[in-house]
Nucleic acid binder design. Structure first.
Lengths: 142, 142
DNA sequence: ATAACATTTAGAGCTGGCTCTAAATATAAC
DNA sequence: GTTATATTTAGAGCCAGCTCTAAATGTTAT
């Protein structure tokens, strides 16, 4: 029910330094301290950390995450803002996943090219130029 | 067939500053200069930029990208290394996409919670705690 | 030929997100 | 009770990846 900063660090993979940094940046406003001034993380704090990891992992900067937390503290008058934030983040995430899919196709193609190249001892210049021409067309138009 | 740094900047969305920085970091070793010292980007350079964007977009640091370019310059003796690099990057990309999928589930759940909350004018504490307990269990075990 | 704009260089500065230090205090293990 | 380990603070340092500056030179339009 109460965890030391070291325990939380071990379990989350973040360092104690990073946890203190997050607190300083306003991302962990609910972490309590005991009578000697040591941080005691609660289950709720773990929940916030999981959310922080999620938002950070989808590209939201710490400032954006702090905004969400500030809205949470502000209370029910910010429910729509928070909903909108999650909707926006979902949209960004979808675009991100589409982009990664495109990158995956390029990388798959490169793997194909290099597997052929390894077999024959050199890159296929014609194939390489074909791919190049396609990209040039995409960027500079016809 | 030959593009100024400004043209390339406009088309790729990178700034001219960034393009010069990439060159300085060894990412654009094939960009030529004309008789007055101005950069002239070729289709091949555009191709490299597209590859750079792809690798950067999948989380590879510029140093890793430079390593690939150095191997390319080194020639056919590095074909296997380059193949392996792309295979490693594909693997990382797959993990990344899985992770994003998990983040998406969390965000979808939050959207659901906040849509309910907006309807009723406040968050469902019971629901919130349920999700919290699940995360705590996942991180700290039983 | 002149004005407006683009490009060059070396190098300084900036931002985000940590990461580490040092010296003091707290807790745990024996 | 003493050692070993953990935590505290304020503040400095670090790294990646840009981003900008200034002063000189090049290019384009009229």
């Amino acid at each position: 029910m109460g965890y030391s900063i070291g325990q939380v660090a071990k379990k989350t993979g973040l360092t104690a330094h990073t946890l203190r940094y997050y607190e300083k940046e306003g991302l962990l406003p609910f972490v309590k301290k005991n009578s000697s001034g040591l941080r005691v993380f609660s289950d709720t704090d773990i929940g916030w950390l999981v959310m922080i990891e999620c938002l950070k992992g989808t590209g939201m900067p710490l400032k954006g995450i702090k905004q969400y937390i500030d809205w949470f503290i502000e209370g029910d008058s910010t429910l729509e803002k928070r909903l909108q934030m999650f909707k926006d983040q979902k949209h960004k995430l979808q675009e991100q996943m589409l982009q990664l899919q495109k990158h995956m196709e390029k990388i798959d193609y490169k793997i194909h090219l290099y597997e052929e190249a390894v077999k024959r001892g050199g890159l296929d210049k014609a194939e390489t130029n074909k791919a190049l021409a396609k990209e040039k067309k995409r960027i500079f138009g016809e």
